[in-house]
């Protein structure tokens, strides 16, 4: 073999190694949502109290749409107090928090809500249509929707007070 060719075989492994090094550093949970920047899909569901609730009725408010499940431990349990606290702090400033319970039993969901004394409206997505409309692939996932009804941010994993404040303040600061 000519001297130059001796390096071809080991060198051909370099691009493969670079690709693997890049790929294995990505978090498979960090799938960018194509929905950010697009209008939030409309939905009409029923709250646990039996009240109809539709997204269209919230127009003009900043909406924090949180997908959760009672079996989602510990992330949903971590964020529930933060969501309730933030909702109480912002409810008078034109912010509404809506919880969407998915792939859950009504009984377990009610226990979860009472354990955390959740006072913001919660609905059940029994058929999973709203979940798919929002491209949900796990819980918890939270969407921040501006006053014009456009999805502006998606947060995967537990929301804390800081995340809530930063996202909501940003949307409240925009002209209505």
């Amino acid at each position: 073999m000519r001297p130059g060719w001796r390096w071809i075989v080991p060198l051909s492994a370099v691009p493969v190694l670079v690709l693997l090094a890049y790929g294995f550093r990505l978090n498979p949970r960090d799938v960018p949502s194509p929905l950010v920047g697009r209008p939030a899909a409309p939905f009409s569901l029923t709250t646990f109290e039996g009240q109809p609730l539709s997204l269209a009725d919230q127009r003009g408010k900043v909406v924090v749409l949180n997908f959760w499940a009672s079996w989602c431990h510990p992330a949903c349990y971590d964020e529930a107090p933060a969501l309730e606290r933030s909702w109480r702090g912002y409810r008078d400033r034109g912010v509404v928090v809506i919880g969407v319970d998915i792939q859950d039993t009504a009984e377990a969901a009610r226990k979860f809500m009472s354990d955390f004394s959740l006072s913001f409206p919660n609905v059940r997505d029994v058929a999973g249509k709203v979940s798919v409309d929002y491209g949900v692939y796990g819980v918890p996932e939270t969407f921040f929707i501006d006053r014009k009804g456009v999805i502006r941010a998606k947060h995967v994993g537990a929301v804390n007070d800081g995340v809530f404040r930063v996202e909501v303040e940003r949307l409240l600061g925009e002209p209505a």
Binding site: Q103, A127, G128, K129, S131, V132
Partner: peptide
């Protein structure tokens, strides 16, 4: 999984 069952329904 339940999610897949729901997606098949959709």
């Amino acid at each position: 999984s339940q999610m897949a069952v729901q997606m098949r329904g959709i």
